[in-house]
C-alpha cells in the first residue's frame, strides 16, 4: 500500500498556469477518483504523480518520499491508460510480464505473477493472443492485469472505463474495487463514470486546475 500527498502542486505550460496549488492527501489503501470537467487538470495531476509530467511547483510525495524528480520507474507505480497502451507486437502474457522481465525478475516468478493476475481478471485463456485479437473490454482488462502483475503499491488509472460499454465497464469496476480491497492497493483514478464514482472511497472534485470539493463514501 502507499499514501500520496500533493502539497501546493502547480503546473504551468509556458506562462499559462493550469494547476493552481492543489493539496490532496490520500491514505494507504484508499480508492480515490478525481473528477471534473474536461481540461480541469485531473489527468495532468495523475500524470504528474506518475512522473510523466514535470511539476512546476509544490511537492508530490509517495509514502512520505518526495518524488518530484524521480523517473516513473523509481516510483513503484503502475498505470492503466485510457487507450490501453498495450504493446501491439507482444502477446498478452508478454505485455503483462514485460516490466518484470525488464527488472530481471526470475522467469518462474514472472510466469507465476502473470498467471495470478490473468486468473483474477479472467484472462487465462487469452495469454497467447495479441492485443489486436481481443475486444476492447478484454484489452482494458489486460491493461489492469498488467498493472496488477507488477505488484505495485499504487495503481493509477486514467479514464479506465471510457472506451468500454456499460456491462464491460461495470465488470471492470468490480474487478478494480475488489483488487484494491483484497490485495491492499491504493488506487487513484480519473473518471467521468458515475458507476465508478459510486464505488470509490472518496471523490475529489476539480475545476479550472483547483480543488473544489471532496465527497467521501466511506
Amino acid at each position: 500500500m502507499a499514501s500520496v500527498t500533493f502539497s501546493d502542486v502547480k503546473k504551468s505550460y509556458g506562462n499559462v498556469e493550469v494547476i493552481h496549488g492543489v493539496d490532496i492527501g490520500i491514505a494507504d489503501g484508499e480508492f480515490v477518483v478525481l473528477v471534473g470537467p474536461s481540461g480541469c487538470g485531473k489527468s495532468t495531476l495523475l500524470r504528474m504523480l506518475a512522473g510523466l509530467e514535470t511539476i512546476t511547483a509544490g511537492t508530490v510525495e509517495i509514502d512520505g518520499l518526495v518524488v518530484n524528480e524521480l523517473e516513473p520507474k523509481q516510483r513503484d507505480i503502475a498505470m492503466v491508460f485510457q487507450n490501453y497502451a498495450l504493446y501491439p507486437h507482444m502477446t498478452v502474457a508478454t505485455n503483462m510480464g514485460f516490466s518484470l522481465e525488464h527488472r530481471r525478475t526470475p522467469k518462474a516468478e514472472i510466469a507465476q505473477r502473470v498467471e495470478w493476475a490473468a486468473g483474477i481478471l479472467g484472462l487465462t485463456d487469452y495469454l497467447d493472443r495479441y492485443p489486436r485479437e481481443l475486444s476492447g473490454g478484454q484489452r482494458q482488462r489486460v491493461a489492469v492485469a498488467r498493472a496488477l502483475a507488477n505488484s505495485p503499491d499504487l495503481i493509477l488509472a486514467d479514464e479506465p472505463t471510457a472506451s468500454l460499454d456499460r456491462n464491460t465497464a461495470d465488470r471492470l469496476i468490480d474487478d478494480l474495487a475488489s483488487l484494491t480491497r483484497l490485495h491492499n492497493r491504493t488506487l487513484i483514478a480519473v473518471s467521468h463514470d458515475y458507476a465508478l464514482l459510486s464505488r470509490m472511497d472518496r471523490i475529489v472534485d476539480l475545476a479550472d486546475g483547483a480543488l473544489t470539493g471532496e465527497t467521501g463514501h466511506g
Binding site: G51, N83, A85, Y87, H89, F98
Partner: peptide
C-alpha cells in the same frame, strides 16, 4: 506512433534507448 505506448514503457521502467529498441523499432 501513439505516445501512450512510450509512456507505458516509461512506467514499466524502460529508458529512452530501450523504449526505442524494444517498443518503437519493432513496431
Amino acid at each position: 506512433l501513439p505516445k501512450e505506448l512510450e509512456e507505458a514503457a516509461r512506467v514499466d521502467g524502460l529508458g529512452r534507448f530501450r523504449i526505442f529498441w524494444t517498443i518503437a523499432l519493432p513496431l
